[in-house]
């Protein structure tokens, strides 16, 4: 097993492109090191990207935020401006693992692990966030929603790494929320989850909405029908019921040790409704 510590994204891409065996990208290591220890993966090459300039930087950009790929959950949680603008995104990221894991884990790692249950992903999809991908063929910006391909697989090409996430500028009266269901109170994997991102007009009517669901399909779902159910409403009871119904209808979950199809379908609707209420309140809406 080889371990490499490149100091530029181009060098990381070169190493990964040239490798012949199993490769893993290491940022916080909260997935990779666990998999290594459990014998789930035996990589021939590990590329540690933490020494690439900017990879651990969180800064304002074009009215939004650019978040380096190795910025930890704890660092996100301590960034007041980011938490104020994107409370749903940051609360999702901060639900990953334990206090100790928060010191290491990153949203990009959570995205690239490509679990349908990743807690950082629905919030980012609802936020319409993009990622910057650097690889052998240069740099491209891609919607977060387009990264997961199937459980454990991403759409990234050989040699490509994600170096940062971009969260766009906020319209006035916008906010978001993320809720997940776990059988415990912390340190668990989402059985179903929902991220809701809303913009209101001055009267409290929803003018824009994105609703994403986690752990109810092979990849995180962006559900247009949920958005349609609440755009143009003040999130009254009818709108909430329609949202819940649309969310449940969109679910394509599996039965497994963590939950049943029946359970995930019902609870995803409940979480979408509850997250929408929270986001609406945060955006200044009054119910």
């Amino acid at each position: 097993m080889q371990y490499a510590k490149p100091t530029t994204a181009a060098e990381a891409a070169r190493l990964l492109s040239a490798a012949s065996g199993v490769t893993r990208v290491l940022a916080g290591g909260t997935d990779v090191l666990v998999q290594l220890k459990a014998g789930m993966v035996e990589p021939d090459l590990i590329v540690d990207i933490k020494h690439i300039p900017g990879i651990r930087t969180l800064q304002a950009e074009a009215g939004g935020f650019r978040i380096g790929a190795a910025v930890s959950g704890a660092e996100l949680g301590e960034h007041a401006a980011l938490c104020a603008a994107w409370p749903g995104v940051t609360e999702g990221a901060q639900l990953i693992g334990s206090k100790q894991v928060q010191g290491r884990c990153s949203m990009v790692g959570n995205l690239c692990n490509a679990s349908p249950a990743g807690d950082a992903v629905p919030g980012l999809v609802a936020a319409n966030a993009t990622v910057r991908v650097e690889g052998p063929n240069g740099t491209r910006d891609v919607a977060v929603h387009a990264i997961p391909a199937s459980p454990g697989k991403t759409t990234l090409q050989k040699g490509e790494i994600i170096t940062s996430i971009f969260l766009p500028a906020r319209a006035p009266r916008s906010s978001d929320a993320y809720l997940r269901f776990i059988p415990r109170s912390e340190m668990d994997i989402a059985v179903a989850s929902a991220g809701v991102n809303l913009t209101l007009d001055a009267a409290g009517t929803i003018t824009a909405a994105r609703v994403a669901l986690g752990a109810v399909a092979p990849t995180v779902l962006l559900v247009d029908a949920c958005a349609k159910a609440i755009i143009g409403t003040k999130l009254d009871a009818t709108a909430l019921a329609a949202l819940e119904k649309a969310a449940s209808a969109a679910c394509k979950p599996i039965d497994d040790k963590r939950g049943t199809i029946e359970f995930r379908t019902k609870v995803a609707g409940v979480l979408a409704r509850r997250a929408a209420v929270i986001a609406y309140g945060r955006a200044g809406g009054k119910l």
């Binding site: 415990r184 109170s185 912390e186 668990d188 497994d256």
Partner: peptide
């Protein structure tokens, strides 16, 4: 929450503390 979960193949599905859920302090 705690239980041994077996698949149809007779193999244990949750041989770890992630999916064998003992209570955490905050529970």
């Amino acid at each position: 929450n705690e239980e041994y979960i077996y698949g149809a193949d007779g193999r244990l599905q949750n041989a770890g503390f992630l999916d064998y859920r003992v209570p955490v302090a905050s529970d």
